[in-house]
């Protein structure tokens, strides 16, 4: 090790602006996540629904030729909203803070003068960017593939429908992503907790009568979906059913969007608190 101490001057005393930390934290998380091979796995999973309409085009016109609209709606609501969205949020969200906790590299970060909130918010922004970067093209490709089937043209109305789903998915990502990020920071084994919360509790709560489903994220995401998307060509029916849906879910789209923003904000705040308060270090185990 060379003795050239004078070459390196001391750091200036003033701290850098908050936004620089935020952007840097997001940039770092983005770069490291995109470089991982496992992100490719997530990309493949996110693009799998595209294959379905493509496969169906191979089948005869008679069997599936008029089904483009129905297939697109089903893929969006059953695959993207109910399966892919929580899965991708779990895949990326749990590891946002959790990866450094698991690999025991978090002391490097916590001994840096970076505001904890900037670190958490920056990483959350990277989650939104990466997951949205997988979901939005996936939705578009699925949309394009479905137009190859009948009864679903590349029209402005259909594009609006696609954008509506994109919006609902992004709002869902906000809620699920914040929840998973908090899980990763708070729990030692967040996968088990995440699986139980997102895939057992949510299913159970939606089946149980009463207001218990208010304690799920899925309720608010589903309430954002276009009402009766398959029959959207009939405006009267659509309006009536939208009202019915509102009564059924007890929340409209606006309230749901607000609820998701509140859920995300509270969970991000909780994550910041956890990162500030938790004593992440391996020494505990070693010393005991």
């Amino acid at each position: 090790m060379s003795a050239t101490l004078d070459k390196v001057e001391a750091m200036p005393a003033a701290n850098a602006p908050y936004l620089r930390f935020l952007a840097m934290s997001a940039h770092h998380a983005l770069v490291t996540t995109l470089r991982r091979k496992r992100t490719i796995l997530a990309g493949v999973v996110a693009l799998l629904p595209v294959v379905i309409p493509l496969v169906l085009t191979v089948f005869t016109e008679g069997a599936f030729g008029r089904e483009g609209n129905k297939i697109f709606v089903m893929l969006m609501e059953d695959i993207y909203v109910k399966a892919l969205l929580p899965l991708l949020a779990m895949f990326f969200g749990i590891m946002l803070i959790g990866e450094d906790v698991e690999s025991q590299t978090i002391p490097y970060l916590l001994t840096r003068p970076v505001p904890r909130s900037a670190m958490v918010l920056g990483r959350f922004a990277s989650l939104l960017l990466i997951a949205a970067g997988l979901i939005v093209p996936g939705v578009f490709l699925t949309f394009a593939a479905c137009t190859a089937l009948g009864n679903f043209a590349f029209s402005a109305a259909n594009l609006r429908l696609m954008l509506h789903y994109d919006g609902a998915l992004l709002m869902g990502l906000l809620g699920y992503g914040a929840f998973c990020m908090w899980l990763g920071a708070f729990f030692k084994r967040p996968i088990i907790t995440g699986v139980m919360a997102l895939f057992f509790w949510q299913r159970l709560a939606l089946y149980v009568p009463g207001l218990i489903d208010f304690f799920t994220i899925e309720k608010y995401v589903v309430a954002l979906l276009p009402p009766l998307a398959e029959a959207r060509e009939a405006p009267m029916l659509r309006t009536a059913l939208a009202e019915y849906q509102k009564k059924l879910f007890l929340v409209g789209a606006t309230k749901s969007a607000i609820a998701l923003v509140i859920i995300a904000s509270v969970l991000i705040l909780l994550t910041v608190l956890v990162v500030r308060r938790r004593e992440y270090s391996q020494a505990k185990a070693m010393e005991s």
């Binding site: 701290n15 620089r20 840097m24 025991q104 840096r112 970076v114």
Partner: peptide, 28 residues
């Protein structure tokens, strides 16, 4: 701080490791 544990972020070069930790100091 130079910790005693021998853990590093995955898939990172030595330079990137130091560079990113410098960025966390607020450096440009």
């Amino acid at each position: 701080y130079c910790p005693e544990f021998d853990r590093f972020p995955e898939n990172t070069t030595g330079y990137e490791f130091v560079y990113w930790l410098n960025r966390f100091y607020g450096m440009t």
